[in-house]
Amino acid sequence: MKRRRNSKLKFEEPSDQSPTTTADFTFSLTRIAVSQICQSTGYKSADSSALNTLTQITAKFLQSLAGLASSFSNAANRTEANLFDIVNGLQDIALSTSDCFPGGSTVHDIESQCLIKSAVLRNLSDFVKYAPEIPFAKPLPKPERNGSSGRDLDHAAVEVKYVPAWLPPFPDASLYSDRCTKIDRSEYHHLWENSDSVTDRESLKSKSFRGGRSAGKLPQRRARVRFKMERDNSIGGGGPGGGDTRIERWRDNDGGESGRDVEVKKKIIDEYFYSAGEWPI
């Protein structure tokens, strides 16, 4: 390795033109990795077009393997790929590139349910065991985590587990935490008849500044309301439906005992019906 570094190398430096877009950046990174691999096999230099082609094919290989694995996982009703999906994808690729991964046609032993039976995986395990380790030339700069990149590692600890990693990160906590804590659940447990939709808005408005309470809850002490329902048959001698009914409503502010209950007084010709009860206003 040391000798190779000292010898004359002519691998193109990809930093001759600074990458502008993400695609350029990933391409130049992949080109560094590919040229390192070529160097490890014994090449001393490479044509730029050949290196670019091999880089593109590497990217295609990665993407097709990822596409195969994700389609396998989706076929199994999963969103996250696991080892089985990757091995299945590798088997498919091994069938097409028969030279690279021999034994692709021998599917792993289903009876033993063990993936290492797959010849592809065994080859990879041998590769890991025997091939020299070539770390990437330079440590990668930490990418800027802005809103466009889906994965936010800093917030990953904060986020809940069921939110997939590819979703954009949560907004700043100050934007929503206030509103969440302000919701008072007890307000939703009022009875329906005490809610705004039933309560007279006018009386509510007049009460609200007095009692200092709002949101559909009436104050405990309030003015009494009396109804007087009177049915008068001016023509006389008619049937029960012949008369007209007047409802008088007044409010007594003296708070006397007589006004404790709402009284409905019905007068039909000569008869008086008294019925007492609480009427929701």
């Binding site: 096999t41 091999l54 590497t58 290989f61 393997l65 690279c100 991964f101 080859n123």
Partner: peptide
């Protein structure tokens, strides 16, 4: 992927 590229190379 590394094995693929190394084999091709």
């Amino acid at each position: 992927t590394q094995k693929f590229v190394a084999d091709v190379a």
